[in-house]
Simulated assay, not measured.
Amino acid sequence: MTTRWLTPEEQRAWRAYIAASRLLEDAIDRQLQQVGGMPHLFYSVLAGLSDAPGRRLRMTDLAEALKITRSRLTYVVNRLERDGLVRRENCAADRRASLAVLTDEGMAVLERTAPGHVETVRSLLFDRLTEEQVGQLEEICTGIAQGLQGEGAGAGADDVPWRRRSSCS
């Protein structure tokens, strides 16, 4: 099989993507640590739960929404639970499942942290793009995500993070 090397244009685009995504994630993480005392992933869990009906989601659904492994989500929820920002409940419909629930304290932390987070995202990303580029960014990222989730050519549907089992499972 012949290796399909990246063209010079693809190599530049790839390197630009890597640099931008790492710098953006680092800046967002630093801002959230300074203002909310939490990393971006913890904030994402709180935000995901705040958008859910009754501020609660099955752990597997939350892992899927965040595109992370179930074991990583369990770690994050344990930490947030210890801080009183999230609690777990048994799922009445499925005894094997558990729900992550955003507490009132967690909602208050989110409400205090969200304005600065949104301003950071806006100033670091969207203020640098034209309206047309925002649409293109959405289209590009949606296409990549669909392909990686098995909705197009590429990875199989069972090879997504929230369905992966750790070696200890």
Rank of each mutant, 00 (worst) to 15 (best):
T3Q: 10
E10T: 01
R12V: 06
A13I: 06
W14C: 07
Y17R: 09
Y17A: 13
A19L: 14
A19I: 04
A20F: 14
R22T: 07
D26N: 10
I28V: 14
Q31T: 05
L32K: 00
L32V: 01
Q33S: 12
Q34P: 06
V35G: 02
G36T: 04
P39W: 02
L41F: 04
S44N: 11
S44W: 00
V45I: 05
A47P: 01
L49T: 00
S50H: 06
R55D: 06
M59N: 06
D61T: 08
A63I: 01
E64A: 13
K67F: 08
I68R: 03
I68G: 01
R70V: 08
R70W: 09
R72S: 07
R72H: 14
L73Q: 00
N78M: 09
R79V: 11
R79Y: 08
R82F: 11
D83V: 05
D83Y: 04
G84W: 05
R88N: 05
A92G: 11
D94M: 07
D94K: 07
D94S: 09
D94V: 03
L102P: 00
D104W: 03
V118G: 09
V118Y: 15
E119L: 13
E119V: 10
T120N: 10
R122I: 06
R122E: 14
S123A: 15
L124V: 03
L125F: 12
D127K: 15
R128N: 14
R128T: 10
L129G: 08
Q133E: 15
Q133V: 04
Q133N: 11
V134E: 15
V134F: 03
G135M: 10
G135V: 07
L137G: 09
I140C: 10
I140R: 15
I140F: 15
T142V: 08
I144K: 02
I144M: 09
I144S: 06
G147C: 07
Q149N: 14
G150A: 10
A153Y: 06
G156Q: 06
D159R: 15
D159Y: 12
D159A: 11
V160D: 00
C168N: 14
C168I: 09
S169F: 13
